[in-house]
């Protein structure tokens, strides 16, 4: 299966024999996968198969879950993020995350995007102002909000809120962006905007996106990994997975025979 991946691409994240447990229950089994730099990797699979859990192992957000335990290695730029001497906070800065349900903070639009900068000790007002404009532009939101930066983030529409959360994540200059079904609560127009945005963001970021929408995975991801019951059944170029899957289960899933 490995030769189905584009060999010349640089590897950003390398997951080796990852097992993951919630209070003794194994939900990820022996996951091994390479995630390429500046490409979009889509994670698909039936609900409860461990997609979100896998995503959250990549920035160690699972650490806050009581009784959670990870075994194996996740190398980002060759460094194991589960090594003992690792600074978890630094990892989360490097690996940003956008949640399934948009979660703007009850602050102004400006303060939402500034949040990550401020907690990371940045005080320079000019820098913050510039960074906010840049991040909002990158998240394709600037034009819509530039005249009301001091208004509450809750006044934005659902799609705008999600793009605000993307801008907030971009402001701290991550290298990887994790997205957990970022458009699942949005209408088709807002979804299209997010998908378009993802296509542009991959020039600068490595993106891993969970989606339960087959068409969406086919549209936006370069590579696709199909998860089932905590196991990667198949992964490789999206085109190949969707046209000539090797595994019968993959074929059944993408043709909608179960799910």
């Amino acid at each position: 299966m490995r030769d189905s991946l584009v060999k010349s691409d640089l590897v950003k994240i390398k997951v080796e024999n990852l097992n993951f447990y919630y209070t003794g229950v194994k939900v990820l089994k022996n996951i091994t996968i390479e995630i390429k730099k500046n490409l979009v990797t889509g994670i698909i699979g039936p609900s409860g198969c461990g997609k979100s859990t896998f995503l959250r192992t990549l920035n160690r957000m699972n650490d806050v879950v009581l009784g959670a335990k990870a075994e194996g290695k996740i190398l980002i730029d060759g460094k194991n993020i589960y090594a003992l001497d690792v600074d978890v906070v630094a990892i989360r800065r490097k690996v940003g995350m956008v949640f399934q349900k948009s979660n703007p903070f009850p602050k102004s639009i400006f303060d939402n995007v500034a949040y990550g900068l401020r907690i990371n000790g940045i005080k320079d007002k000019n820098y913050i102002t510039q960074k906010i404009e840049k991040s909002l532009q990158d998240a394709a939101l600037w034009k819509e909000v530039k005249d009301r930066l001091n208004k509450s983030a809750f006044d934005l529409s659902g799609g705008q809120q999600q793009r605000l959360c993307i801008a907030r994540a971009l402001a701290v200059e991550p290298q990887v962006l994790l997205m957990d079904e970022p458009a699942s609560a949005l209408d088709p127009t807002a979804t299209a905007k997010i998908e378009e945005l993802i296509q542009r963001l991959k020039e600068k970021y490595t993106i891993v996106i969970v989606t339960h929408n087959m068409q969406q995975a086919a549209r936006i991801s370069d590579h696709t990994a199909f998860f089932m019951q905590g196991v990667i059944i198949e992964h490789g170029l999206t085109k190949k997975i969707f046209t000539k899957p090797v595994n019968k289960i993959t074929e059944d899933y993408i043709t909608g025979r179960f799910g």
Binding site: V64, V89, N103, F105, I119, R168
Partner: peptide, 15 residues
Amino acid sequence: PNSYRQGALALGATK
């Protein structure tokens, strides 16, 4: 809401 805590942590905040 828990999403405020998670959102902050994901941006590199300490607990």
